[in-house]
Amino acid sequence: MSKDSAAAWPHDRNRPTFTPAPGGGLELAPSALDVRNLTIAYADGHVGVRDLSLELRRNSVTAIIGPSGCGKSTALRAFNRMNELIPGTTTSGKVLFHGIDIYDPAVDAVQVRKRIGMVFQKPNPFPKSIYENIAWGARLNGWTGDMDELVESSLKQAALWDEVKDKLKRSAYALSGGQQQRLCIARALALTPEILLMDEPTSALDPLSTAKIEALLDGLKAKYTIIIVTHNMQQAGRVSDMTAFLLTGDLVEYAPTRQLFVTPRDERTERYISGRFG
């Protein structure tokens, strides 16, 4: 990363890009991510996402739904440049974060992933203690503050602290699946991201653990912007403020969740969400 672009990259979340408000004051741009004409193709030529444009609202939960293979996970991975890890994938279009295209050659993908974190479908804790699962990544990313405090606050934000505070030195593998997933959320939060991407974060969990994570999302959105890919339409209805429906790589409808689930505008959305697709 060049010196200039490093200066332009919004490192300090207290110093985000501001736009002048109509009244002359300053206000935060309403969208956390501004996706423009994003097209992603795999090595075999298959287009995963076609000409996707959408503005993802700050401090809200956006759900991306659609049948298997519709491109929802591909789109999610594009939001923090994870598709680059798949050889042969090509990406065109822009993903603007604080006005900067995260695909700009001058932007460092590691910095992107630090500010835009990802939680995966299956909990994937490190084979380390609960404490180290959080401390390790933070230390690698240059955290120099009070580590105990960071571990505690991250676990509290992920609603896991009360369950693990007396066994922080125990292996993360000793936790239940639901606890492991909340640990992964805590680990992502410890890097103080602005945006949290979640790829079917509850599909491997039982209903009780799922309910805990869903309740967690509602609290987290005050501080973070959350984008969740889910197969579970009831979950999208329960947790999200906005919903995007993708079909064979195309964005069919993007609307406030309550509107999309009660009065969808597109017949394809209607058929999919009411279980009449296929």
């Binding site: 009831q234 689930f261 009660v262 009065t263 969808p264 009411s274």
Partner: peptide
């Protein structure tokens, strides 16, 4: 049946 959209309406 968890109806949505027209079904729910």
């Amino acid at each position: 049946q968890q109806p949505v959209a027209r079904d729910l309406r």
